[in-house]
Design a protein around this nucleic acid. Structure first.
Ligand code: SF4
Ligand code: SF4
Lengths: 162, 162
DNA sequence: CTAATTACGGATACATGATATCCCTATTTG
DNA sequence: CAAATAGGGATATCATGTATCCGTAATTAG
């Protein structure tokens, strides 16, 4: 059970977009180059973000992506669910219905205790991701990343932002 | 990102084994019949539990499985990790190393903030599963499951337990 | 002792989903 | 008008989950 690599890509792209000045856009090409990723495939991840309404897009030269909300309104969970989907990790196949002791046609009253425990764990996972915004992330990165690389990257990005 | 169906199977089997009297064993065949599952494939899940040391096995007729610990010492997390593996859901591919602005040969100081947030969410998930034991589960089931089915299943199992 | 039953592991086939690339279209900018 | 862009469909490839089959060693029932 492993998240798609698209998740990591999307998170990093949103981190970059969070540092972009108001009104500027960054293209798939630039984001792919910056992270060393296949442009066409990264495009699929960015399209997921667009379909989820997390980013805003513009066409043409100098077009690309920018965040649709402020960084402090965008959570990790938003991004993860946009590319990975919002489904549960535990899918109930109702195998208890196969119990030979059970009267035929017996109707169950909702999900059993097993499923509920698993779904609560899923919710704990989601809850942890919902607590962290991209404003938090940028703040942490700014404190941790080597200042030369940080400002160098920033400059590199602005040179390509439309 | 969906858990294998083996996880559900293993959880249900452990629930049954939790209700088994001390010293009795239940075979793969009986567990497969009870849940309506392919015997050979379910066997793989049970082998995972065995390799993880969660269950004890005996060969020969009247052989099968029993829990290796008391139900109040066996957690959901034990079972889930036994069949799903203990790895993280977020695997870091270190794409930040591809940043063209970064000095060549620059060495990173540990995992970045993105990975840490994802891993904390994983830990929240594990923590939720670690909190629930099979003693808890049996207690809930006993209160919720139709009494006729509950005792009927119990009788059915004991008839086949070696 | 003998025959039946069981867990276990290896080999194999199949289905599904993730990864990756290619190409066409509509739109916007310069 | 020409170049650059997001978007989406088609397709190929690969990894993983699902499922079955069979042989082996150990153990028990009769
Ligand atoms: S988890 Fe519960 S509800 Fe889901 S299949 Fe198993 S018994 Fe049925
Ligand atoms: S999550 Fe952080 S450490 Fe992992 S690849 Fe992305 S940038 Fe690197």
């Amino acid at each position: 059970m492993i998240l798609k690599s698209q998740v990591e890509w999307a998170l990093h792209c949103c981190a970059i977009l969070s540092g972009l000045p108001e009104g500027r856009y960054l293209s798939t090409k630039a984001l792919a180059e910056l992270h060393g990723l296949p442009k066409e495939y990264l495009s699929k991840a960015l399209q997921s973000l667009s379909q989820a309404g997390l980013v805003h897009t513009t066409l043409g030269p100098s077009g690309g992506y920018r965040l649709a909300k402020a960084p402090n309104e965008l959570t990790f969970l938003d991004v993860v669910e946009a590319v990975e989907g919002g489904g549960r990790t535990f899918v109930c196949q109702n195998i208890r219905a196969n119990n030979p002791c059970r009267p035929k046609g017996f109707c169950e009253s909702g999900p059993c205790a097993v499923a509920r425990v698993m779904w609560e764990a899923d919710e704990a996972w989601r809850s942890a991701l919902r607590k962290v915004t991209f404003a938090d992330l940028v703040q942490t990165l700014e404190a941790e990343v080597d200042p030369t690389i940080w400002s160098g990257t920033f400059e590199w990005v602005l040179k390509r932002a439309g």
